[in-house]
Simulated assay, not measured.
Amino acid sequence: MVVLGVILSCLLLVVIVKIILLGRPRSSKTQTVRSTPLDQVPTLFLPGYLGNRFSFGFLQNRLVSKFNANKSMVIIVNRHGKLRVIGQMNDYRTMIQVLFKDKTSRPKQQAIWLLKICQLLEAEYHVSSVNLVGHSMGCITIFWYLTHEQAKSPISVKRVVAIAGPFNDSEIARSTPDVDAYPFNANGPVKRMPIYRALSQKIAAIPPEISVLNIAGKINDEQQNDGQVSLNSAFSLRYLLQQPAHYYREVVIRGKWATHRLLHENRLVDANIAKFIWGV
């Protein structure tokens, strides 16, 4: 029994350490042999509602292991918007994990904090451009930033990856009894929710050179959603971006690993991010 207790304690310690490390930098051990302009743009990862180090921690670890990326920095935003930086900037496939201490903060507030992060990256690390990756409500934060705060930023946004973005949901941070899936006509969703309307009013503010990859999940042919966000809600973004989008592509992930909470643990999502961001 004593031996078993020691083994269980050791296993628990290993699990705790791994959980802690999900919120810490991690660099690739592979020697960099070449670098392209795509490799030199840092990529920020923004979690969804109630998101934490788990939200993108495992995904970033896989990108480090398989695609020679570097999780160089973690930026923690406290409830008052003060930034704490862990790690140092890398010049090759840099990934930056953004963690909000106030996990219930809304996209409008998070977009202001994202502006502060961009200002810090330019002032302290001489960053001139970034990529942005968001999951769920994190997608709304990104597009609220692009439409309402980007003009104040000293750095540009090159590429955006939206994963399960609720762009035409009645609630963007809560589950509803029914998954919103309003049909489209030639002009977009036949019923437009407040968040869609708010973004559409300022969508022309998005710089035209931005490229967008929009990823959504479909559990099966009968269930055209990921359990929380429908394909129609996620892909309503295409109608918002008809004019300002330089490049726009949609990807549907299918199957049991395409649920809302598992999309960022799906290896197909990893591969699509790596190809879109770094061209690998």
Rank of each mutant, 00 (worst) to 15 (best):
N214H: 01
I163W: 03
D91Q: 14
V157L: 03
P37Q: 13
T32K: 13
G57M: 10
V2Y: 08
P107L: 06
V127L: 05
G138C: 04
F56P: 12
A204T: 01
N225C: 03
C118K: 07
Y182S: 05
V33T: 14
I86N: 13
A205Y: 05
G134E: 12
S27G: 01
E250L: 00
R62G: 00
R159H: 06
V280F: 07
S175H: 10
R106D: 12
P194D: 00
I273K: 11
W257D: 07
S105T: 15
R26I: 13
F58H: 06
R79H: 05
L231I: 11
G165D: 06
V41Q: 14
P194G: 14
R79N: 15
L44Y: 13
W144Q: 08
I277G: 02
N187H: 14
V98M: 08
A164W: 05
G23Q: 05
E171D: 05
I195C: 08
I203W: 04
A181T: 10
D169Y: 01
S236Q: 02
V17P: 00
N168Q: 05
D91M: 07
G227N: 02
T259G: 13
V14I: 15
K29G: 13
A162T: 14
R192W: 05
F54V: 10
L83N: 08
R53H: 11
E171V: 08
Y145P: 12
H148C: 04
R34Y: 07
H246K: 15
L50D: 02
R159L: 07
N52L: 03
A204C: 03
T259K: 10
E209C: 00
S211P: 00
L50E: 12
I142N: 10
E265T: 11
L199W: 03
P183Y: 10
Y49R: 09
N61A: 10
N68G: 04
I215L: 07
L237P: 03
P37H: 10
L46R: 06
I140A: 02
T32N: 04
I140W: 01
N272V: 00
L99R: 06
L240S: 12
V179P: 10
Q242Y: 01
A271E: 11
S170W: 11
L132A: 14
V269L: 03
Y247W: 05
Q223A: 10
V280I: 03
Q224F: 02
E122N: 13
Q97W: 02
L11D: 01
P183K: 13
L38T: 12
V85H: 09
I76N: 07
N131S: 05
Y247L: 05
